[in-house]
């Protein structure tokens, strides 16, 4: 089915957008990580949100999530790895494709800079998607750079395909197959000639043909290369519309202050703008 709205991000902005759009009787799909993975879930106490003083970040997120769910929002847990505007929007999560008429970007802020060599070797050994490209590395040495909670699971999947997997991350992984070697490292550089030949991890070289960089989210500007930004944040107007038709943004991704109340307000406005856009658009 084609959803009226696809919301990328399951934090406060994304949930607020979902609730507002459900209130207008639009079909909504939220694609995002488990709410437990939101940076807000680690906040010990949030005291400046109207009407809910003293909540922990996790309590707040769970309350928001329940509310969105009760309103009839559909959720897909996962990471949007690619996106295309084509008669609306198509979003890929793993091997599944979801379609929507409008798009609300609410992914939060991606705090991880790209590694040296990452952009240069993208598609020539660097991949963001184990499900998509894993098969092309059967029998070959690959490194998984684990920067998300589902990365150990993806590494196990690559091993099951027959890849020779090494797992690299700053913290020990949870749920990694015991047969996969783990290297603790934080400073990474991707090395190569025509294609990737290895990963330098804290100065030591791990030879490999492929590097799977698995982050919590794919940056919106990687999903939509023509999306306009300003000082690293998505540029929006008062309707929360971006420079792209049918694409709205809300929450931390649009700029400071990085606060729940601002995210919720923006999510609400973005959803109403998306609804207005849908209602004005002639049926196809």
């Amino acid at each position: 089915m084609t959803y009226d709205l696809i919301v990328l991000g399951s934090g406060p902005a994304g949930m607020a957008a979902a609730i507002a759009a459900r209130g207008r009787n639009k079909s909504v799909l939220v694609i995002g990580n488990h709410w437990q993975d939101s940076p807000l879930a680690r906040a010990e106490r949030v005291d400046n949100y109207l009407g809910l003083p003293g909540y922990t970040g996790a309590e707040m997120l769970e309350t928001f999530y329940r509310h969105a769910l009760d309103m009839g929002t559909e959720f897909v847990i996962g990471k949007a790895i690619s996106l295309m505007a084509w008669n609306g929007f198509m979003v890929t999560v793993g091997s599944q494709v979801y379609e929507g008429k409008t798009l609300i970007l609410a992914p939060g802020v991606v705090r991880q800079a790209k590694y040296p060599g990452e952009e240069e070797y993208l598609g020539r050994g660097v991949s963001y998607c184990a499900t998509c490209d894993g098969m092309l590395y059967r029998g070959k040495p690959v490194v998984v750079v684990g920067r998300s909670s589902d990365a150990p699971h993806e590494a196990n999947y690559l091993k099951s395909l027959g890849c020779q997997v090494t797992y690299v991350s700053p913290q020990p992984p949870v749920g990694l197959d015991g047969d996969i070697p783990y290297v603790k490292a934080g400073k990474l550089t991707i090395k190569g000639e025509q294609t990737v030949t290895g990963l330098e991890a804290d100065g030591a070289l791990i030879p490999c043909n492929g590097v799977f960089v698995l982050r919590q989210t794919v940056a919106p500007t990687d999903l939509l290369p023509t999306l306009e930004t300003e000082a690293g944040y998505i540029k929006v107007d008062r309707r929360m519309a971006t420079n792209l038709e049918g694409v709205f943004a809300a929450g931390d991704c649009t700029g400071l202050p990085l606060q729940v109340s601002k995210a919720v307000g923006e999510g609400h406005v973005a959803a109403l703008s998306a609804c207005e856009y849908l209602d004005q658009k002639p049926e196809q």
Binding site: I81, S82, M84, W86, M90, T92, V93, G94, S95, Q96, V97, C129, T131, C132, M135
Partner: peptide, 14 residues
Amino acid sequence: WASWCGPCKMLAPV
């Protein structure tokens, strides 16, 4: 392309 690749499905109509 391959059948197990989501982005490939997206590109197919193009």
